[in-house]
Amino acid sequence: MPTNWADEVDGIEAPQTFTDANGITTHIEFRINDDGKKVKITRRTRNKLIHDKVNKAVAARKKWPKFGKERGNKPGPDPATTNVGDNIKLKLSSTGQVVQDVDEKHEAMKAQLQNKKILCRICKGDHFTTKCPYKDSLGMEDAAATLTPAEEPAAEEQQGGSKYIAPHMRAGASSGGVGGRPGSAGPDSREKRDEQPTLRVTNLSEDVTEADVSELFKRFGHISRVFLARDRETGACKGFAFVSFTMREDALRALEAIDGRGYDNLILRVEWAKSSA
C-alpha cells in the first residue's frame, strides 16, 4: 500500500493489511505509545467461517428473550451460573477392567517397589509422598499436581535412581540451605523434564497428533509427557516429537521397537533426546 507523504511527515506510516496464501490476514500498524516512542503492532488473524445447519425450531428458540431470574440479561452464558469444569478423561475399554484399573496399577507398583527403600519427599519418612501426614501443612503442590497417586512412586524411584546428582543439585537441597544455586528455589519443571528418559521421534507425517504418538508409545510403559512440534500457523505437525517415559527400560524398549518402523508410509527414526542445556 503506497504511503501518503503527509503521513510520513508525522512519522506515522499508514496501517497495512494483507492476506497470505494460508488465509492468514496480517495487519500492521504504527502507533506512538505513552513514552512518545513509535511502536509497530502486528496482528495476525485467521478467519474461519463454519456453517452449521440447525432445525428451524431450534434457531427460533435461540432468539427467545430470557425470562425469570435471567430476565433482561444479555445473550451468552453468565459466569454466575455457567462455568467450564476441568478436563475429564473418558477412557473407553473393551476389557471390562474399568473398575480395578487404578487399584491394580497401585498394587503392581507396590509389589515392584517392595524391596526398595521408599522415601517421602516432604518429611523424608518411610512412606509414599502422597501418604505423608504433613502433605497438606508442608505443601507439595508442584509434585502432586503433575503426578497421579498411582504413578507417583515410579517418578520417585526415577529421582532416586542410580545417576549421581551433586548434592546442591538435588531436589530439596535449597530448603536445607546448603548454599544452593542463586535464584533456584527448587527444581523447576524443565530441570525435572531433562532428568526423565526422553526419546526424540523424527520423520513423522504432517497429520500426526499427540494422541497418535502416545498411542504408539504407551504400550511400552507409562509416558509422562508427549510434545509434538506443530506449525504455529497451520497447526500441522512439523515432523518431530519428544516422548518422555518414567522408566528408562521402557524408553529403551520403545526405542528399539519403533526405530526404523514404518508409520503413515514414512520410516520413523527414534533416538535419545539430547539435553537442551
Binding site: K66, K69, E70, G76
Partner: peptide
C-alpha cells in the same frame, strides 16, 4: 438451559 453452551434461558418460578 441451552445445552450447547450452558447458557441459562430462564427460570420457571
Amino acid at each position: 438451559w441451552f445445552s450447547h453452551n450452558g447458557e441459562r434461558l430462564g427460570t420457571y418460578e
